[in-house]
Design a binder for these strands. Structure first.
Lengths: 222, 222
DNA sequence: ATTGAATTGGAACGTCGTTCCATTTTTGCT
DNA sequence: AGCAAAAATGGAACGACGTTCCAATTCAAT
């Protein structure tokens, strides 16, 4: 009873970059960045580590492929909105993606020169052009926005690392606020004052407020 | 001839957190983030790894102490300048520090909730207050600026990882520009156009342009 | 059926952060 | 000064990881 594939049919359980990336994403989403190991990945795929390396160069390439996958999907939907709203929508899509898969934020912040980042840069840049920003400012404007997004991405990833799924967000924030309040009033008056706002702030709104700030600066400078 | 310390004098080669951090910074600056190992650190200090752990909790704590050290030093100089210039100066001090010690950028982006970050946040926040930003906007404004700085920090660290000391910066940038130009014109028109600007741009100026953008947005919204 | 190439699985290597513990050094007390 | 407790040290050992290597298997073309 030899397993002869009648025609060009490959084994149904054949390994492929797509399947590897898919399982990697599943592990990352379910158990976090530190859970993705070539060992666990191999186990989940019922194969050995060596087989994976035949399809993927190394772990960085795997992460890059995984984030590329998700970013592509998130940026796929078109935007016919006027430029100002289109940037906001684009930024929000990236934010929501990172919020749902915090490891994406970590990888984007760690390896900025990846296709996914170029696609974000492209999307931001187009809207900035559409916004009527003069040519000489476009590069700086797009870079600033992308860097801001990148910073928020890293922050978000760090937060997720700090409070793994299941953590009581309100309690964690309250704990932070309490720590801030304990700081020396002479050295950290501003931080202490902000501690009060920490509890009821909305990450998404705050992120968007930053985008709006940059956009406002862009329009003011015209 | 026993080695009796006459008075409370300790061995001159005694280990201490300060000495450990100092040597760690030296290694990081000279050979990069990946060169800092508890083994090399122990060797440089002529001791064992266990001895180091008695003074420092773990590697993260070591990096945090090291960046705290440098950030403290960089932020020490006072600023009596008008708020607008003071923020720029503060941001530039952080940027220059990260430019000189790229590993600081990596660690700030990776672990945002550290004392050094709070000090940056405090500095930024004070000037934002002085700028006359209304209370309700202060939190968002300060966060936006810090997130932007964080994003640039991470980017800078990634760049340094990409081109280790000794790399020809112009050649590396040209190589990037060439790659951008090879992209599909239909998919990445903006990136392709920006490729031309990649070669002659100044990181520092670009960073500052982003800060100015946010500040302009802040002033426009008043 | 046969051969060479593509693909697989898992053992093994080297490195790292960290832990453990026996030993030495320092300190506080009498 | 002498001594016990505490602080500090150094290095071996552990376990996990990314990666490499290779013998075995499966595939596609003849």
């Amino acid at each position: 009873m030899t397993m002869k594939a009648r025609r060009g049919e490959r084994r149904t359980d054949a390994l492929s970059k797509d399947r590897i990336v898919e399982v990697a994403i599943a592990i990352l989403d379910a158990e976090g960045e530190s859970a993705l190991t070539f060992r666990t990945l191999a186990a989940r795929l019922a194969t050995g580590a060596g087989a994976i390396y035949w399809h993927v160069a190394d772990k960085t390439a795997l992460l890059t492929a995984a984030t590329g996958d998700l970013i592509d999907r998130a940026l796929a939907e078109g935007d016919d909105a006027p430029p100002r709203q289109a940037v906001r929508a684009l930024a929000l899509r990236v934010f929501d993606l990172i919020d749902a898969h915090s490891w994406v934020g970590g990888h984007l912040a760690r390896e900025p020169w990846q296709p996914a980042m170029l696609r974000i840069f492209e999307g931001v840049g187009r809207q900035i052009q559409a916004l009527g920003v003069p040519e000489s400012t476009q590069f700086n404007a797009a870079t600033a926005l992308v860097n801001y997004i990148l910073g928020c991405a890293g922050q978000n990833a760090a937060n997720a690392r700090l409070m793994p799924p299941g953590t009581d967000r309100d309690a964690a924030l309250a704990a932070f606020a309490a720590e801030w309040t304990k700081l020396d009033p002479a050295e950290h008056p501003f931080v202490r004052k902000m501690a009060a706002r920490l509890g009821d702030h909305d990450d998404r709104e705050q992120f968007l407020a930053g985008v709006d700030l940059i956009l406002a600066g862009l329009e003011a400078g015209r």
